[in-house]
Design a binder for these strands. Structure first.
Lengths: 191, 191
DNA sequence: AACGATACGGAGACTGTCTCCGTTTAGCAA
DNA sequence: TTGCTAAACGGAGACAGTCTCCGTATCGTT
């Protein structure tokens, strides 16, 4: 389940080149100018016409999604070591903190997508899937309450990512992610 | 601290009339078309020129904020009875649930503003202020941990409002607000 | 080498944002 | 009342961004 394997039919060589260039340029652009960055401008900087951009990505959301999927893959990779940690509950907690940090570093671009648990947005799916494994392991070890679902945890976490990434941009101070995730974990831990 | 008392200097009668009409029309429009609704269109429907709209509200955010402030006042009024409830902790919990419901009913327009604890966005301030009173009462009664701040609670809650209002729009199912608020409260309650 | 399918690019129609400035109006003072 | 001034209005229009359409170019295959 990586970005590359998701294309249904093989693209023509030039099409694939343009696709990849567009995603690369878009990533820079969104990071620099936020999710409102001009699409025509992105096309120009990628050396293609607007028509090409809109054929690959019918709307801004689609492009944003493609950018996020690539990012999500890299974030998910970060979770791999945690899957075999000796304390699954601590690992879950650590993962959630990292997730918040990653989203913050990504300027909150992904936070809007984080909570949809359907496959609709692939970004969400990758991260949801990764979280699920960690949640299951923590449950199996009896560290967290069995009635808590991954979706619920993601919903709770999304607020923190949202708050923290917002705060970073507007220079406000909020409590540290560790602290907030800690509060959530206090609620879902078995006692 | 209501919407009316916030104007620094008295407005001319026609200016006030237009201001109010604009906020009223904008409320309808944002509710119907989301926060991207056309501002010129709002001006037209309010029977004023674009210039007038932009003099009162220099940008979309300002107008959105004015709409939200009015809404926030009404939401805060809803909390009044809870302030004198016999069980402050239950009252707090109930308030948070209502908050999530209100934000959902308001199409998530306010969710972006909920978490800024500075006065910058008046919407946030009204709601933060109201929450603060309930939090303090719950702390005084020993119902919740003294180390938890109002801001923290609001940050945790904002994710739920965000998730729930998003879900409402895209037809997804998420856990009930009561359930999610319950999880948070489990984390902050004294044991 | 030739041909069909696939993809490209950019002109341009369209929509929305926001400004500028000549005109109107409210409020006040004489 | 009348007249004056500051405040407010409105709408034309410059500008920026979105997205489509279609003639042209390129790929990959036979």
């Amino acid at each position: 389940m990586t970005a590359e394997t998701r294309a249904p039919r093989p693209m023509r060589a030039d099409a694939r080149r343009n696709y990849e260039k567009l995603v690369a340029v878009a990533t820079e652009s969104f990071l620099a100018n936020g999710p409102e960055a001009s699409l025509d401008e992105i096309a120009k900087r990628a050396g293609v016409g607007p028509g090409t951009l809109y054929r690959h990505f019918p709307n801004r959301e689609a492009l944003l999604d493609a950018v996020c999927v690539q990012w999500a893959d890299s974030v998910a990779a970060d979770a791999a070591p945690l899957l075999s940690a000796e304390d699954p509950t601590a690992a879950l907690s650590e993962w959630l903190v990292r997730l918040v940090d990653h989203v913050g570093a990504f300027k909150g671009l992904a936070s809007a997508l984080l909570l949809s648990s359907e496959r609709k947005h692939d970004t969400a799916w990758v991260l949801h899937h990764t979280s699920e494994e960690l949640v299951e392991r923590a449950k199996a070890a009896g560290g967290i309450r069995p009635d808590v679902t991954t979706s619920e945890l993601m919903q709770l976490t999304s607020g923190i990512t949202y708050a923290c990434s917002n705060a970073k941009q507007s220079g406000k101070t909020v409590s540290a992610p560790e602290r907030l995730i800690g509060l959530i974990m206090d609620g879902v831990r078995t006692r």
